[in-house]
């Protein structure tokens, strides 16, 4: 299973490295979202600095949607999904591989967005342990949930419009918990953030387990 996961993750990341869609389209989009928030909220009165955690995670959420869609779009052509099904790879491995690839892309995007909120919103990053822990747990949850729902919507003609409607309410708890944890860290009271981090970890574990168990049947149906 782990070997299959590494194979699939390697394949997806290699495609990204060569096509540069994440780098050339998703990353600029994420930063653009940050800039748009600055237009919408008055930048002079410190609203941006105070709401930086929430805005950061909304941008991450939108980017994760794009990353998930991209992760399945690369397999839409040339019957790539049929190829995966016929490959004899463990479905759980395929799931973990695809989720890992999405997660790695998201980590890259979060580093970029983190620099973005420091530079654009003059946010000060405190409590690095809580911040990083939140990022890791939230990323795992987002990637796992995205991969599960992505395969549900994959291959449908309306997938671009359907996936956000299916996925965003599901990952709403991630947005809530990650924002609260970051707020706690940035305000210098990391003690308040740990329960939210636990919630994120539970979410990630549930969706990872759901994906490992259910990905096979879902892939067969897609």
């Amino acid at each position: 299973m782990w070997r299959d996961a590494a194979l699939v993750a390697g394949k997806d990341l290699r495609i990204e490295a060569r096509s540069r869609v994440t780098l050339n389209q998703v990353a600029p989009f994420a930063v653009l979202v940050l800039v748009l928030f600055a237009f919408a909220l008055d930048p002079d009165r410190g609203i941006l600095t105070r709401t930086a955690p929430g805005l950061f995670w909304v941008a991450v959420l939108f980017s994760s949607l794009l990353a998930t869609q991209r992760s399945y779009a690369v397999e839409a052509d040339d019957a790539g999904r049929d190829g995966l099904r016929l490959s004899g790879l463990d479905p759980a491995g395929i799931f973990l591989g695809k989720a890992a690839a999405v997660a790695l892309e998201l980590v890259g995007l979060q580093i970029l967005l983190g620099i973005g909120i420091v530079v654009l919103y003059s946010a000060h990053l405190h409590g690095p342990v809580l911040l990083l822990g939140t990022c890791l747990a939230a990323t795992a949850g987002l990637a796992a949930a995205g991969t599960v729902y992505g395969v549900l919507a994959a291959g449908l003609r309306v997938r671009e419009t359907l996936l956000p409607l299916l996925l965003l309410p599901v990952v709403a708890p991630v947005l809530l918990a990650a924002t609260r944890a970051w707020e706690a860290a940035l305000s210098g009271a990391p003690g308040d953030g740990w329960p939210w981090l636990r919630l994120l970890a539970v979410f990630a574990v549930i969706y990872l387990a759901a994906g490992v168990l259910g990905y096979g049947p879902l892939l067969e149906e897609a």
């Binding site: 003609r157 309306v158 359907l162 299916l166 965003l168 309410p169 259910g214 149906e221 897609a222």
Partner: peptide, 28 residues
């Protein structure tokens, strides 16, 4: 959030696709 989840589920049920596939996906 529950309301939006159900709206998503109902939207999924309206997507034109093969019957058995739609049923399985919706059930999940």
């Amino acid at each position: 959030i529950l309301f939006f989840l159900v709206l998503g589920y109902l939207a999924l049920r309206r997507v034109p696709m093969e019957l058995s596939r739609r049923s399985t996906i919706s059930a999940v």
